[in-house]
Amino acid sequence: MLIWIIRRDLLLAMRRQADVLTTLFFFIIVVSLFPLGVGPEMNILRIMAPGIVWVAALLASMLSLGRMFSNDYLDGTLEQILLSPTSLPLLVLGKMFSHWLVTGVPLVLMAPVLGIQYDLPFSALIVLTLSLLLGTPILSLIGAIGAALTLGLRGGGVLVSLLVLPLYIPVLIFGAGAVEASTAGLGFDAHFSLLGAFLLVSLVCAPWATAASLRISIE
């Protein structure tokens, strides 16, 4: 059942590639705007790079949250999902996973290229990519709660950012922190363990909270 919903969402994403690409280009543009704002001084940029890439990833992933449930809501598929004999948190987990595959993974793949723009050393590029690999699933998981709560509301897109961005802060701190620690020559395994712990906690809690939110919103 999980497979069906993942396969369906990926199929839909394939048919609407523009949506996927918009998120990716948003990410690239935001990251590329910063040097234009703060100046091309490489030493400053190198310090700022992890934070900038991570904030841009947060924004890009948040931007795509609206699509997570709203299309299904508008054409009535969401009702069918809610009435499915399969447990709803499981189906929601499937949707979260495909959201991550479609929006998170492209960001992870693009990050090293953007890191080169900021003259990050090779080791830092690897840490940046790995931190995004661990952190972006959390963004999809937590973001889904916000997306479910704001379903069908006027101005839901802005509202979801108010709800979700404060909850993203720990991921930002430890994601960007890992890269900084590695450039400073310190160990970054503590950061990764914590990101991993967040991932596990949100993996357990977020599907339930999202399922409950969907039932509240659809009522």
């Binding site: 709560l149 720990p170 914590l194 509240i216």
Partner: peptide, 26 residues
């Protein structure tokens, strides 16, 4: 809906507080 977001916030407050503290000492 408010209850869900308030509860999610409560679960997150210790995590946020702890990570901000960590970030600060860093």
């Amino acid at each position: 809906a408010g209850a869900v977001i308030a509860l999610v916030g409560v679960v997150n407050i210790p995590i946020i507080y702890f990570s901000v503290q960590w970030w600060n000492t860093l």
